[in-house]
């Protein structure tokens, strides 16, 4: 609008990408944070509102995120929620004279607060509008549960099974919550940071409920 001073809002916040602008408009308070780095747009939402958010993103004609590309998780064990960098000018001479470690940048670690350990990451794209969006939801360690997106995209079925298999994230309302890569008797979730890479385990016989029944999806 011409009545507003043009410089004001631009100085307060960096310029939003057109996609984020539309998404923030449609999603309102559901977006906790939003970032735009290296050409990737990303929003953070609370896990309670993931199903609603995804439905709006899929059904809104201007956003029309119809293709769910990927579902995965991140384990931030012993780390801050997000990694940020303070870029430092690299000066070879001063670094070697002062015997500083030869790093091109240094990490800024925010203090470890009551931050959840896991993040579930969704990648969406639109076959009509050709844009991509990343959604992140944080989940606490003691209750890693989130609603399944299978009712919206059948593609979520296998991707969420994989995330359950490798990270132990529980997707509530998933129609077929089996492991996908590993065998049912496998103990633990190997992509968690506290699962040792060289950890071996013997194949164990499954004795839990339904052990004798043929395995069938519902």
């Amino acid at each position: 609008m011409s009545a507003e001073k043009p410089g004001d809002s631009a100085a307060a916040a960096p310029e939003l990408s057109p996609l984020l602008k539309t998404a923030l408009e449609r999603l309102g308070d559901r977006v906790l944070e939003h970032h735009s780095a290296r050409g990737d747009d990303r929003i953070h939402v609370a896990r309670e509102s993931i199903l609603e958010t995804a439905r709006i993103l899929r059904d809104d004609p201007e956003l029309s995120f119809d293709l769910l590309l990927d579902v995965t998780a991140i384990d931030y064990l012993g780390q801050p929620d997000d990694f940020e960098t303070k870029l430092r000018v690299w000066d070879r001479n001063s670094a070697s004279m002062r015997r500083q470690p030869q790093r091109r940048h240094e990490l800024v670690l925010p203090p470890r607060g009551p931050h959840p350990r896991f993040a579930v990451v969704y990648h969406l794209t639109s076959t009509k509008r050709a844009h991509r969006l990343r959604i992140k939801c944080r989940l606490p360690e003691d209750d890693p549960k989130i609603a399944s997106l299978t009712p919206l995209w059948p593609a979520a079925n296998w991707l969420e099974r994989e995330t359950w298999d490798l990270y132990g994230i529980v997707f509530e309302g998933h129609p077929d919550p089996r492991r996908i890569y590993l065998y049912e008797e496998f103990v633990g979730h190997p992509l968690r940071k506290d699962y040792a890479k060289q950890g071996e385990q013997p194949i164990q016989e499954y004795v839990g409920p339904g052990a004798k029944e043929p395995r069938r999806p519902h």
Partner: peptide, 30 residues
């Protein structure tokens, strides 16, 4: 630098994407 990226190329069977999370060290966090 620390941060995360997703980049996709058209592989022979479809969209091949890599999602890399870096914590600023020489090894990917994810």
């Amino acid at each position: 630098p620390a941060g995360e990226v997703y980049h996709a190329v058209e592989a022979a069977n479809g969209e091949l994407g890599f999602y890399i999370v870096s914590d600023g060290t020489g090894k990917p966090w994810k």
